[in-house]
Design a protein around this nucleic acid. Structure first.
Lengths: 246, 246
DNA sequence: TAAATTTGTCTATTGTTATAGACAACTAAA
DNA sequence: TTTAGTTGTCTATAACAATAGACAAATTTA
């Protein structure tokens, strides 16, 4: 059944490799009868490992809330859908997520004024070395952290963006407060990385977890860049949806 | 310096957690002088581990081709940029990647006729149970596998798509051969997962590695869906670029 | 040249992970 | 009720990961 055996000496414990494999299969839904997983013994034979190793994997998935074991009966999937995060010309965090989660909010982690690096200056089309406002925020949906973002704004144009965000808890509202009623997403770049230590802390992830990293530029209706942001999503809680309006 | 300590008993070896952290820092370029990493002893102190553990991490990064150690001198970064994969209304694999890599090609892994599942039928807007052609392909750039994709086409409309792909090695050309001169990407959904065993085999990844999984629907110029595809990218080799034409 | 700094290699010990086997506890079906 | 199949828990052992210390080999700096 399996084309390739598990890799030993890879730095990833075998129980974790099995957990990753099962998590994937559950996510892509390989037709499990009654949402019931094969028995521990069956899985042990399939992966060619000891039953205890399979138990360690199932234990990990149970802690993540993905499966649930019942003595005498078996192990069952507790389906949990990812939150779909829309990315388009007009993407707002609360817009897209608000309909899927009960409660959404942004929490300000840090606010500072920095000197624009060449990277930031080029993204915002301002002169390198001028002041930018740096805004660190954590976004949550239903009490679970979803993403951690850092945004940069031209300090000259948006001197009060920090205070506005703090009172509103929303970038869209803060920008509106600063006179920007509408804005468009100009570009988005997406990468996937292993969670850093900061990620595991703020997003409540375990090491080895995945973060989707997006780099985006938002512009006003005249095409002038107003916001440059890097966002790190907990990959097992979201999917990014790109809709191309025709 | 570090907000959070490394996690033991997590199923991820500490050397691998350090390797992941360093890989991230190298990728986001935290200003290393002369592309030189701190010494093994410095890193050991920073992560509060033994020097041998740091060496194991550096060894892994060296095997990945990311760093290179030189006795008496230190450990140096061998920069390697990710291939940027554009996602837009008009995305073609060879278009976008062709300019960045020396050689690109698609290899047919498997070709079969299947009965459309509800999921596929709904994506292609055909009746469930009708025949679809399923095309598995592996894409490579400069000899390195980049992505593995499965595409479904309506068998009635594109009976010869498989043969056309086999001779041309390109979906765009195969579609042109079947009378579709132009097509548009209707939507794309992106998730990140840990590599499955098939991924580690076909994409030459190590366990614990990350794959970017996209689910896309392409339509002809009349808006009729013609292709439904799922693609798995080796995340450490690509970034996905979404450009919103204004 | 000498000293300091760096990576490379070896031995030994301790802690964690994986295997192995046995049996209890629980559930569903014969 | 009995049986088969399942998860839960215990003990013991082998394989691997991490620590510790020492010193060699190469390079750069004083």
């Amino acid at each position: 059944m399996n084309v390739k055996a598990l890799e030993r000496r890879s730095g990833i414990a075998i129980w974790r490799q099995i957990a990753d494999e099962l998590r994937n299969e559950i996510a892509t839904n390989l037709a499990l009868k009654d949402n019931r997983l094969p028995s521990e013994l069956t899985l042990a034979k399939r992966f060619d490992v000891n039953r205890h190793t399979v138990r360690a994997a199932l234990n990990a998935l149970a802690k993540e809330g993905i499966v649930e074991s019942r003595q005498g009966q078996g192990t069952f999937v507790r389906r949990q859908k990812r939150i779909s995060y829309p990315i388009g010309k007009r993407t707002r965090f609360s817009d897209g997520i608000g309909k899927q989660a009960q409660t959404t909010r942004g929490k300000l982690l840090n606010l500072s004024t920095e000197i624009a690096t060449p990277e930031i200056a080029s993204a915002l089309q301002i002169t390198a070395g001028s002041n930018v406002i740096c805004l660190d925020a954590l976004s949550e949906a239903d009490g679970m952290p979803v993403s951690r973002s850092t945004s940069w704004f031209c300090a000259q144009r948006f001197p009060d963006i920090g205070a506005a965000y703090q009172t509103t808890g929303s970038i869209t509202k803060a920008l509106a407060h600063c006179g920007v009623d509408d804005y468009l997403r100009q570009s988005t770049e997406i990468e996937a990385h292993h969670a850093t230590m900061k990620d595991t802390e703020y997003l409540q992830l375990s090491p080895g977890a995945i973060v989707l990293v997006t780099q985006a530029i938002n512009s006003d209706t005249d095409g002038n860049p107003i916001q440059y942001s890097k966002t790190r999503f907990a990959a097992d809680r979201v999917s990014l949806m790109i809709a191309n309006e025709l």
